[in-house]
């Protein structure tokens, strides 16, 4: 596992160094193009266009490396447990605890001291899910 992550880091360092070299070479070419233009009055448009493209590409690649990876969607949703009193219908909603299941008996009701039970266990749909369900035909 650690070997794999080392590989990833090494690849990125190698990639960054390649971009830096590319940028340096592009700047040198650009300077050379300007120098030639100043000395001889001749503009090498091809070198100019290529070096500008290479610089743009390098900047884009650096920005791409810096951007955070998008969310994978494997984040776990929050799950809640609803506890209800059998007599007065008083409800409490709390976060799900391991060992909870529907119809499990819970602590006595804080209002009427009658037994309570787990009425419902549910998760709230996340924003991405809700967004996907909003349709405009």
């Amino acid at each position: 596992m650690s070997k794999k992550s080392d590989n990833v880091r090494r690849t990125q360092a190698y990639f960054v160094s390649m971009i830096i070299v590319l940028m340096l070479l592009s700047f040198i070419t650009l300077l050379q193009t300007f120098k030639t233009y100043k000395e001889r009055g001749y503009m090498d448009y091809l070198s100019f266009a290529l070096s500008i493209s290479a610089i743009t590409l390098s900047v884009y690649m650096i920005l791409q490396i810096k951007t955070r990876p998008p969310k994978t969607g494997f984040e776990q949703p929050e799950v809640f447990t609803v506890i209800r009193c059998s007599k007065c219908g008083f409800e409490i909603t709390r976060k799900f605890k391991e060992g909870d299941y529907v119809l499990k008996e819970a602590d006595p009701c804080p209002k009427c001291k009658e037994p309570t039970f787990i009425y419902m266990i549910f998760r709230k749909a996340d924003e991405e899910e809700k967004k996907r369900e909003r349709y405009e035909l």
């Binding site: 419902m120 266990i121 998760r123 749909a125």
Partner: peptide, 12 residues
């Protein structure tokens, strides 16, 4: 997606 994952509030 809803069938195999934790029950959604709308379904409950």
């Amino acid at each position: 997606g809803d069938v195999v994952s934790t029950m959604r509030k709308e379904i409950a």
